[in-house]
Each structure stands twice: as structure tokens, then as C-alpha cells.
């Protein structure tokens, strides 16, 4: 009987690159939807990914393997941080990292009646900055990822049009700040 954990291990081992349309829903502790956004997510393990938010506001989060770039078009600013510093303890590293989940997370399979295989990861280190990451697999395909912070605020990502191991252009994960836009922070060379 395959479990969510099996699917997660399969994902970590077999998925080198990944592409999907995503819908992000932020839900406040009372269960109210705070915000919904959509965009494209691409991933190249280890260490590279892009979240290109299109609606309701254009925003880019790009990890190029060394640095992570946040560009919010309306705020007219790019913030750059070294990838180690910024992402040390976030679920994004789970998808993009080469780490084997067991050593960082307690993993348990959740019962479900929606035909999906659910697995929940809770960080072994207590002072991590999120409480739990829950992943749902539809057959072999990663369909949902839900992150819950210590205020019980949840960010749910639903993936559609999933393509596993696509071929990407050379500069897919290269980020060049648009001219005239402030860049804050030092990019690691």
C-alpha cells in the first residue's frame, strides 16, 4: 500500500526538473481567505526554482542556486539574499534541496478520503519558522503543498498542468534586475 511518504521519496529521487501552474491561497488562523494569487512554478533540483506570480500582482521569486531574488513590480524593488541565509529552513528547500527529508523532518502519512495521498512533515528542530508542511500526491503527481506557520496561518499551493523532468532553457533560473529598479542586498558571486 503506497503512502504519501513513498510518493515524496519518489519525487525527491526521480524529479530533476518540474514545471506547474500554481494557485496560492493564504488562509488566516480563522480560516478566512486572505489572498489568492496565480502564476508559474519551475524547479530544477538541486537549489534552483522560480515562482512567477502573475495575478493579482506581478512578483518574482527566483533562486539561481546561489542567491534568491525577490522582485515585486509594484514596490519597484528587488531584494537579494544568499540562498543559504534566506532559505535555510523553508519548505522551498524541501522541493529544491537535495536533502533527504528524514533527517530534517518528522514524516507521517495522513488518512484521507479524497483519493490523494497526503504526507505531513514537521521540522525536528523546534525553533524552525514553520509548523508543518503537508503535501498531497494525485497518483505520482505532486498536487498540493500547504505550509502552516506558528500563527496558524496557512499558504496552500495547488499545482496544475504539471510537467515532470521538462527541458529548460539555459538561463531559466538567471535573474537580471530590470534597469532603473533598486536592488537591495549583496548578491553572492
Amino acid at each position: 500500500q503506497t503512502t504519501g511518504e513513498d510518493k515524496l521519496n519518489q519525487f525527491v529521487q526521480h524529479v530533476e526538473t518540474f514545471q506547474a501552474a500554481f494557485e496560492q491561497t493564504v488562509i488566516d488562523p480563522e480560516g478566512q481567505v486572505m489572498e489568492q494569487a496565480q502564476g508559474l512554478f519551475v524547479l530544477s533540483r538541486p537549489g534552483k526554482f522560480r515562482w512567477d506570480y502573475e495575478t493579482p500582482y506581478p512578483q518574482k521569486i527566483v533562486a539561481d542556486g546561489k542567491n534568491i531574488w525577490f522582485y515585486d513590480v509594484d514596490l519597484e524593488q528587488v531584494t537579494v539574499k544568499s540562498q543559504q541565509e534566506a532559505l535555510a529552513e523553508t519548505p522551498a528547500t524541501l522541493l529544491s534541496g537535495e536533502l533527504v527529508p528524514e533527517d530534517k523532518y518528522n514524516i507521517n502519512n495522513l488518512p484521507s478520503d479524497d483519493g490523494l495521498l497526503w504526507v505531513e512533515l514537521t521540522p525536528k528542530q523546534t525553533e524552525s519558522n514553520f509548523q508543518a508542511v503537508t503535501l498531497a500526491f494525485d497518483g505520482d503527481v505532486l498536487q498540493q503543498m500547504i505550509m502552516r506557520d506558528s500563527f496558524d496561518q496557512r499558504t496552500r499551493l495547488t499545482f496544475t498542468q504539471v510537467i515532470e523532468n521538462p527541458k529548460f532553457k539555459q538561463d531559466m533560473f538567471k535573474f537580471t534586475p530590470p534597469t532603473g529598479i533598486d536592488v537591495v542586498g549583496e548578491a553572492q558571486q
Binding site: 486572505m34 512578483q59 514596490l75 524593488q77 537591495v184
Partner: peptide, 14 residues
């Protein structure tokens, strides 16, 4: 509700 970018010296937070 909204979004903010805070910058202090060479450090920024979104």
C-alpha cells in the same frame, strides 16, 4: 492588507 519592502542599510525584507 498589502505588501511592504523594508530596507535598512544594505538589508531588505519583503
Amino acid at each position: 492588507k498589502g505588501r511592504t519592502a523594508i530596507t535598512q542599510g544594505q538589508e531588505g525584507w519583503n
